[in-house]
Computed example of a mutant assay.
Amino acid sequence: MAAQQSQGIQTLLESEKEAAKIVQQARQYRVQRLKDARAEATKEIEQFKQAKEQEFKAFEASHAGTTSTAQTAIDKETEVKLQKITDSYVKAKDAVVAKLLDRVVLVHPELHRNLRKVEA
């Protein structure tokens, strides 16, 4: 009977060691899975970050081109308007100067309409 108890205790100890080994392997497996998950998440985050960075650069480039194109169009339009104003100035300059000189130099003295004649 003692041999049987000893054998039963020995079996229990071996089972306990085997269970501890299984628990240890499960813990190692869990730790490894967590490390793998973190590495995979980091990798996905990096890929997402790169994709968004490229998307932003493309957006920036497309809008920067639009801005420079708009600036060029505005510059051309401004140049055309300045040319029209300059042409108008050159055409009307002599006539305006002549009218001003006529008004200043040619004086027609006459009495004001509200002025009454003083009878003596």
Rank of each mutant, 00 (worst) to 15 (best):
E79Q: 15
E46I: 03
T69W: 10
Q54F: 04
V107R: 00
Q54D: 11
A37S: 02
E60D: 14
S68F: 14
K35R: 12
E77I: 04
E44H: 09
T72D: 12
A70F: 06
T69H: 12
K43V: 06
Q54K: 13
D94R: 04
Q47W: 06
L106Y: 13
K91V: 09
Q71C: 04
S88R: 15
K52E: 08
T78W: 13
D87E: 04
T42S: 13
K49Y: 10
V97R: 04
R33L: 10
S68P: 00
R33T: 05
K49G: 00
E40Q: 14
K81T: 06
P109C: 01
A61F: 02
A73S: 11
R30V: 04
L100Y: 07
F48P: 00
V80H: 14
D102K: 10
V104M: 05
T67H: 14
T72R: 10
I74K: 13
K93R: 14
Q50T: 04
K43N: 08
T67R: 15
D36E: 11
V107L: 01
V96E: 08
R30T: 08
Q50Y: 02
Y89E: 03
E46V: 02
K91E: 07
D94P: 00
L106M: 11
K52H: 07
V96L: 08
K81Q: 15
I74M: 09
K43T: 09
T66D: 12
